[in-house]
Amino acid sequence: MDLDVFVTAHRAEWDRLDHLVHRGRHLTGAEADELVALYQRTATHLSLIQSSAPDPLLTGRLTQLVARARSTVTGTRRASWRDAVLFLTAGFPAAVYRSRHWWIPTAVLSTVLAAIIGWWIATHPEVQSSIAAPQELRRLTRPGGEYETYYSSHPAASFAAQVWTNNAQAAAMCLTLGAFLCIPVIWILFLNVLNLGVGIGLMSAAGRLDTFLGLVLPHGLLELTAVFVAAGTGLRLGWTVIDPGPQSRRTALAQQGRAALGMAIGLALVLFVSGVIEGFVTPSGLPTWARIAIGIAAELAFLAYVYILGGRAARAGDTGDVEAADRSAELPAAA
């Protein structure tokens, strides 16, 4: 394609579109129709230039023009409580449901790996001694030791806030760093699994595995599920870089990335609930069975939320992406 000839042939249309965009709401009916037609034509021109004769200056100008024209055509839409309700009842659970083929295997493999690490540490005293000195291990695992006092070492409210912040950051990192070919996500996930496995192994070696599980399970079921969902979604995002499927890599990444960022908000709410349980239920004087029952109830409620509301929304076509009016325009692909 001869770029100079193409620009000469269509510059008048672009200038006319720019003029109509500047007039905004003061257009007549005929001018509004003309604006829509020119917007669609210019979007096609931009696609042709990007695929056949990319020119940074011209591409930048037309990209801005198309974006401004689209904003004029569609108008601006303010967020409302309806958006929040739709996100919580459809968008977020649908995104979690649709990514279940990633986070469920992640959860299973991580749990098995944590159990193997715990067994290896518990049955090999030389591994335990490489982790810490014997007196340090006793200080960690004895009754009233650091594994137990950790959950009551700070006021419940501040401890819950601290735990929530740390876990939300870890989940957000899994979601956003997945685009780097999954490697950061795998590392973050491994560190979490390793910490859990070390705790299982050391407390098991001290004959206090029941105490450890009684402390971890009330909040850990929901907390770990949220981390596994974040990790699985991050891995899915990373795989999109490798294999975008029938869509272009840019379009597929944009769709998966928007859904992942939305999930970061939803998972922050889930982790807030687990943080409250960890701050107020785990260190409470409730019997162990009661604390674990609360953790199981929270986990089952989340899974029901995902599979009932999320499954229904996913079958209705919801992907967890933002509404079409809030997405960037997808340019037609040149043949």
Rank of each mutant, 00 (worst) to 15 (best):
G234E: 00
G245A: 08
V241L: 09
V185D: 02
G232R: 01
I200C: 14
F212V: 10
G238P: 10
L202P: 03
L217K: 01
L215V: 07
L221K: 00
L213S: 07
L215K: 01
P218G: 03
H219A: 09
D243S: 08
L175E: 02
L224Y: 12
L202I: 06
G178I: 01
S204C: 08
W239A: 02
I183N: 13
G238W: 05
V229D: 11
A172V: 11
R236P: 09
L177G: 07
H219I: 04
V229R: 00
M203L: 07
L181F: 09
F180L: 10
L196W: 07
A231D: 05
A206Y: 02
T233F: 07
N192Q: 04
A252V: 09
W187A: 13
A254Q: 10
D210A: 06
L217D: 01
L202K: 02
G197W: 00
G178D: 02
L177W: 03
L196D: 05
L189S: 12
R208Y: 12
L191Y: 11
W239S: 01
Q247S: 13
C182W: 07
E223M: 05
L253V: 11
G234F: 02
P246A: 12
S248A: 09
A231C: 11
A206S: 13
G220M: 04
S204Q: 00
H219G: 05
L235M: 09
R236W: 06
W187N: 15
F190S: 15
T176C: 06
L222A: 05
T211P: 05
R249N: 08
P246S: 14
L209R: 05
A205G: 14
T225K: 00
L224T: 13
E223P: 08
E223H: 11
G201H: 04
N192I: 09
P244M: 00
A254P: 06
I183K: 13
G238S: 13
G234T: 02
L189N: 05
E223Y: 09
I186P: 01
A206Q: 02
G178W: 00
L235H: 09
I200F: 14
G220D: 14
C182E: 12
V216C: 10
R236L: 11
P218F: 01
L221F: 02
D210T: 06
V185L: 11
L189V: 12
L191S: 14
L224A: 08
S248R: 13
L213F: 03
P184T: 11
T225M: 03
V198N: 09
L237A: 14
R236S: 12
L202R: 02
E223Q: 15
A226G: 14
R249Y: 03
V193Q: 01
I183Y: 06
A231E: 00
A254C: 11
F190D: 10
L191F: 14
N192S: 06
F228K: 02
A254R: 13
A206D: 04
A226E: 13
T211N: 04
V229P: 00
L213D: 10
M203T: 12
V216W: 02
G199L: 01
L191M: 15
D243N: 14
F212N: 03
L215S: 04
F190L: 14
V229A: 10
P244Q: 05
G214D: 06
F190A: 15
V227Q: 04
P218V: 04
A172F: 08
G238I: 03
L181K: 12
F212E: 06
S248D: 08
M203Y: 09
L215Y: 10
W187S: 12
